[in-house]
Deep mutational scan, measured.
Amino acid sequence: MALNTPQITPTKKITVRAIGEELPRGDYQRCPQCDMLFSLPEINSHQSAYCPRCQAKIRDGRDWSLTRLAAMAFTMLLLMPFAWGEPLLHIWLLGIRIDANVMQGIWQMTKQGDAITGSMVFFCVIGAPLILVTSIAYLWFGNRLGMNLRPVLLMLERLKEWVMLDIYLVGIGVASIKVQDYAHIQAGVGLFSFVALVILTTVTLSHLNVEELWERFYPQRPATRRDEKLRVCLGCHFTGYPDQRGRCPRCHIPLRLRRRHSLQKCWAALLASIVLLLPANLLPISIIYLNGGRQEDTILSGIMSLASSNIAVAGIVFIASILVPFTKVIVMFTLLLSIHFKCQQGLRTRILLLRMVTWIGRWSMLDLFVISLTMSLINRDQILAFTMGPAAFYFGAAVILTILAVEWLDSRLLWDAHESGNARFDD
Rank of each mutant, 00 (worst) to 15 (best):
W363L: 03
C31N: 00
N310S: 10
L335V: 12
L165I: 11
L353C: 13
A183K: 01
R294T: 03
G235R: 02
G389M: 01
T67V: 14
L230M: 10
E21A: 07
L414T: 15
G396F: 04
F74E: 03
K111M: 02
T5M: 15
R260A: 03
Q186D: 08
G346T: 14
A56D: 10
V324Y: 15
I299A: 08
L3S: 13
L208N: 08
R97D: 02
L366E: 08
P129S: 03
Y182K: 07
V121G: 07
I322W: 06
T224S: 09
S273M: 03
R256P: 11
Q112T: 09
G292F: 08
T11N: 11
Q295M: 03
L368P: 03
F425L: 14
L401G: 05
G396Q: 02
M164S: 03
I274H: 11
I58A: 11
L409T: 06
L337M: 11
Q220V: 09
L276W: 11
W415E: 05
W363F: 08
N310R: 15
F141W: 03
G85S: 07
V406A: 07
Q33L: 13
L255C: 07
Q180T: 15
M36A: 13
S309F: 05
D381W: 12
R245M: 05
I316L: 08
H340C: 10
L255Q: 04
T402Q: 05
T402M: 02
W267E: 04
E42A: 13
E157Y: 08
V163I: 12
H184L: 06
K111V: 02
S286G: 08
C54F: 00
V170Q: 02
L208M: 14
A423H: 12
F141A: 07
G127H: 01
L3Q: 11
M36W: 11
R25V: 11
S321Y: 12
L409K: 07
I19A: 11
A307Q: 14
T327E: 02
H418N: 09
R59M: 07
A56R: 14
R260K: 06
H184C: 04
L282Y: 08
I177M: 14
I58M: 13
L66P: 14
A312L: 10
R260F: 08
R59T: 13
W408Y: 04
A128G: 03
R25N: 10
E215A: 10
M109S: 12
T201Y: 05
D227K: 08
A71H: 03
H252S: 02
L277T: 04
L132Q: 04
L404G: 03
L384T: 02
S262W: 12
T358P: 05
R247A: 07
R412F: 00
H237W: 08
N4T: 09
D427S: 13
R97K: 15
E42C: 10
S119V: 01
R362P: 06
V174N: 06
Q33V: 15
L159P: 01
S176Q: 09
K160L: 06
T110W: 01
R231Q: 08
Q55K: 11
R250V: 15
F217C: 14
P87T: 11
T110V: 07
L277Y: 02
R250H: 04
I131E: 00
C248S: 00
R62M: 12
A187F: 13
N422W: 13
L337C: 11
G346V: 14
L208R: 08
I299T: 12
I400W: 04
S273Q: 04
V357I: 09
I253D: 03
N422P: 12
S45N: 12
V232L: 12
L130I: 08
G61I: 12
A49H: 07
L354A: 12
S262T: 11
S321G: 02
D427R: 13
A2S: 10
C343L: 14
L352S: 12
G396S: 04
Q295E: 03
I136W: 12
L79M: 12
D63Y: 15
D27Q: 13
R158Y: 08
R144G: 05
L88G: 04
N44H: 11
T201C: 10
I351P: 14
K111D: 11
Q382R: 08
K265H: 05
L352W: 11
D114W: 08
V179G: 13
F238M: 05
H237N: 08
I8D: 13
I126S: 09
A320F: 15
L149N: 05
D27C: 11
M388E: 06
C124F: 04
S39G: 14
L77Y: 04
G146V: 03
G127I: 01
I167E: 06
L271Q: 08
G396C: 02
R350W: 14
L77F: 13
Y138L: 03
G421M: 11
L89E: 08
G171T: 13
L213I: 06
I126Y: 04
F238Q: 15
R259S: 07
G85F: 07
T75V: 15
I106E: 04
L366W: 03
H184T: 07
F318M: 05
S176I: 11
R258Q: 03
L93Q: 01
I131F: 02
P284C: 09
S65I: 03
R62W: 11
S206E: 05
G246D: 08
V324G: 09
D99R: 11
P325S: 05
R59G: 08
R260Q: 02
E215S: 07
G315L: 06
A314F: 08
H340A: 09
V125R: 00
S45M: 13
S376F: 02
L154I: 08
